[in-house]
Simulated assay, not measured.
Amino acid sequence: MRYEKEDINKAIEVIQSGGIILYPTDTVWGIGCDATNEEAVRKIYELKKRSDSKSMLVLMENPGLIARYIDMMPDVAWELIEVTEKPLTIIYPNAKNLAPNLLSEDKTVGIRITEEKFTSDLIRRIRKPLVSTSANISGEPTPGNFVDISDEIKNGVDYVVEFRQGDMEKKQSSSIIKLGVGGEIEILRK
């Protein structure tokens, strides 16, 4: 399956101008923006009707970039990234260089390396991490496919990516592991 050049170019244009997009990920459809843009992150919280005390995760396309956004990359993180066979979000301590309202109160951030082609190409071309949060109003069920996303979400973003809208394969949310400063591992979602 191939996406159209115009589709990714429009998504890039919207993100670079501080807008938010609705897009397919390697898990569920997500709402996203430039993870370093505090105002764009605020727009997502408002659309989702979600408290900014609940952090959102960040997608990257290359694990080598993680060190730019956290103080120290624990060795165990490299091992987890290498052995995982399904999407894995790792919550790292001491986040930096990201929008402050994106981080949790304890300054942690969840980062997932995406293997989804459209999203990987998008991140590579904007040269910034991409916010990813499920495409639903806070407290409502996570939609399994594009057709399950509410009109409120679809109409509330600045651009809806066309790629994979007709995909009916049910995707699962990622596993979530939290790493402590000393390399402690806490499994939050399998």
Rank of each mutant, 00 (worst) to 15 (best):
D26N: 11
A35E: 02
T89F: 04
T108V: 03
D26I: 10
L98C: 06
R112A: 03
S51A: 12
M56L: 15
R112K: 10
I44Y: 10
P24E: 00
I91G: 04
V58S: 07
S51E: 12
I113W: 12
T27F: 05
K10P: 00
M56P: 06
I21P: 04
T108P: 00
R112V: 01
L102T: 04
L80C: 13
E38N: 15
K48G: 10
S53I: 12
I44C: 10
T27S: 13
S104F: 00
L57P: 01
K54L: 06
E13R: 12
E13M: 10
L80K: 15
E39F: 13
I21M: 09
G30Y: 09
P74I: 10
P74K: 07
T108W: 02
A77I: 12
L57S: 13
V76S: 10
E85L: 04
D52W: 09
M72E: 13
D26Q: 11
P100F: 01
M56D: 03
E61G: 14
I44A: 11
T108L: 02
Q16H: 06
S53L: 09
I81G: 02
D75S: 15
L22M: 07
R68A: 11
E61C: 13
N94C: 06
R42Y: 01
D26V: 11
M56W: 07
Y45D: 08
V14C: 04
L59Q: 08
L59M: 14
G18N: 09
T89Q: 05
A99N: 09
I91L: 12
A11V: 08
P87V: 04
M72W: 01
E38Q: 15
G64H: 05
I12F: 04
L80T: 14
S17K: 15
Y92S: 05
P74A: 09
L57T: 13
S17D: 14
K96D: 02
E105V: 14
P24C: 01
S53W: 00
I81W: 12
R50V: 11
L47D: 02
K96F: 05
I91D: 03
L57H: 09
